[in-house]
Design a protein around this nucleic acid. Structure first.
Lengths: 212, 212
DNA sequence: GGCAATAGTTAACGACCACTAACGTGACCA
DNA sequence: TGGTCACGTTAGTGGTCGTTAACTATTGCC
């Protein structure tokens, strides 16, 4: 039984393993998942994974570096292609929402298992994350010049939390059905922009900043 | 070296252990922390913890049940004491923000390590969480009658994500200082209410509330 | 003083787990 | 045909970790 076309796997074996590992890590935590389990999820058993990865840590590292890099690259692209700041912000929001809705396990790992990385990888991921945040902050401050930089950064973090919250809401069956994907995307879009707008309202435009 | 008055511990030894366990669980994950480490954090070593708790699982269970119960109780109290729906929502937001800012480790555990519980405990925690969400949903729909129930629930989840995002933003030192506690609380308050307002805007139904 | 309770200690045990070693097997190819 | 390489397998190993056992010290009570 050679490769044929594996059930629902589009890419290589590596990609299949990464996808299943992401799912398992997200649902039970990095330390809560054994290599045997990851192997079983792709049809091979245990140490066979070591033909594809140096170790369990390497899988997590590749996942986190990959996701951070993709977020940043996509963000840069969207900002560059937008005509003005306002549409850039909308595009950023839309892109992040798509990401959160389509790659739930990755977005969960992204802010949950960062500390399980080797020092060097963690540094790299944090740098990519920081660049991504700064990209948002620039756009947000261009749209709302009244926002001071620390406030804008806090807002961006909060909106990330808002958008990234969707994976958590899949816990239990409801009496009333949850909104579908497109409705959810639309709703999150409104929520995120509404939050930014509310942050800018009543902000002294010249800002001599009011913390503490 | 007996008890004297332990450094900064207000309550009993149990409480001290719980506090340190929460901090460690939040920063390195339930599986990532060993009992020896928890013991060391309170000055005793390893198995001494078993004089106070049945096991590591029991600590997590008590933490999660405790926090869920406190959130719900406080939420009920605030709703009951509010004069109208709008001030009830404001009070709920304020309460949840205070909680997120003052008990960061707990709020992190709350939506991260739920699956590490025994079936019965997990069921209990989920029930408390659900009641808390429903309490919010009722208030939100009273303030914004145009919101359908599923949308309102999604909004509540999203706003929780927004408010709960604050613990994650403490990762690295910044060039510009982060907002202080009171400024952060104020900002989160505006963000949360702004998000709710934006969710209700453009929603078809009969809402006619004057502001916004 | 005797005695029980409380709150620790160290040593050890058993399970689990990431990883390695040694081996097998089919595909491709000169 | 025979060699090599990609990709598995099972068995084993060393280390970690939760938990228990056995023992000790301090404290308050009669």
């Amino acid at each position: 039984m050679p490769s044929s076309t594996t059930d629902k796997s589009a890419g290589s074996r590596r990609d299949q393993i990464l996808r299943e590992a992401a799912r398992l890590f997200a649902s039970r935590g990095f330390h809560g998942v054994g290599v045997d389990e990851i192997g079983a999820a792709v049809g091979i058993s245990g140490p066979g994974l070591y033909r594809h990865f140096a170790g369990k840590d390497a899988m997590l590292a590749e996942l986190l570096v990959g996701i951070s890099g993709r977020l940043l690259a996509e963000g840069k692209r969207r900002k560059a292609e937008a005509e003005d700041a306002h549409s850039a912000l909308e595009s950023l929001v839309r892109g992040h929402i798509d990401f959160a809705l389509d790659d739930r396990p990755l977005i969960t790992l992204h802010d949950r298992e960062l500390d399980r990385l080797r020092e060097s990888d963690r540094k790299l991921v944090r740098q990519l994350q920081r660049q991504y945040v700064e990209l948002w902050v620039e756009v947000v401050r261009e749209v709302y010049p009244g926002l001071a930089e620390p406030e804008a950064r806090a807002c961006v973090h909060a909106v990330f939390g808002l958008i990234n919250s969707t994976p958590h809401s899949t816990s239990a069956p409801r009496s009333t059905p949850a909104p579908g994907r497109t409705a959810m995307a639309f709703l999150l879009h409104r929520l995120a922009l509404g939050a930014f707008g509310a942050a800018a309202d009543g902000q002294p435009s010249r800002h001599d900043h009011p913390f503490e």
